[in-house]
Amino acid sequence: MTGEAQSCFLPGTKVQFAWDSTSLGMLKTCPRLYQYQMIEGWTTRAESIHLRWGIEYHAALQDFDLLRAEGTGFDDAVRETISRLLDRIHTWQPDPDLDKRSEALKSKSALVQTVIWYLDHFRDDAAETVILDNGKPAVELSFRFELDWGPSQGQYLTVSQIREREGIFNISVNQPYLLCGHLDRVVNFQGAMFVMDRKTTTTTPSAYYFAQYEPNNQMTLYTLASRVILGTPIRGVIIDVAQVLSDSSRFVRGFTYRTEDQLSEWMLDLSYWFNLAETFATNGYWPMNDTACDKFGGCRFRSICSKSSQVREQFLRSDFVQQPPEDRWNPLKPR
């Protein structure tokens, strides 16, 4: 990501106006998690291994999808994908904590292997990349769209409100909320259109694993966004999961569907979440959700939140790294 993106916060405030599924997910999971990560930029070394591994995995599959959409043959596309991947990761030196299985498994060799195995596994896939009206394949589609309301601190008025107040057309309409993100791929699958999202995990992708996607913030946003971008009904998301094991990788495909009602409800809920986020930001306080600490194998900030509030800052500084503002997660950073 580049460091020249516009801030996702209103100038001089902690009020976020540009949201993606990652930042919204943090807020929904725990406002304190959102504070530590989005507002203050605390991160860990392990996070960088998982993040880089995931970025490279997605980039490789994106390369392959684009090459195939351009008409490159399967074997040539695999070779070119691996060549580019090796080039990108050559100087990367992952430094995993070998006591942590999930980190130890995320090696460079495992990355190359998982990409090759994924491509071979889905070689004769029935899912085909959608070609957009502009002739480009629907791969790594970035989306950004405005909502018809914004943070009150941005003194946002809707167009209808402005029209009602005749004579104040000359006031500046301030920042509306933006929803942003990136879709891995949009595909035609057995006569229907789906977003395709690739995930990696070191746990078993069982029915229990897939249950986390219904309901799910990210998958609902992706379905909504794809409908806005493509202007056509999208049924939901195909989730291709790669399980990274000590000496192999395995792949499981799951589906998650969204109805119109579900999308409308999600948007309604979103207005409440954004109001909450603005209230937290205005008060400068993001409360802890202490029922979420054990989710996803345990929150990375659990060791901090379990300390007395007077000493938390000290432990944060010793166990975490605070990223400079330009390196922090920002939904407005282009890929």
Binding site: A104, L105, S109, Q113, S246, D247, S248
Partner: peptide, 18 residues
């Protein structure tokens, strides 16, 4: 080749991980 070995229920030729 490793994928073929795993699918055949055999161990791959190289342990991976650092």
């Amino acid at each position: 080749k490793n994928r073929g070995l795993v699918e055949a229920g055999k161990r791959p030729s190289k342990e991976r991980g650092p």
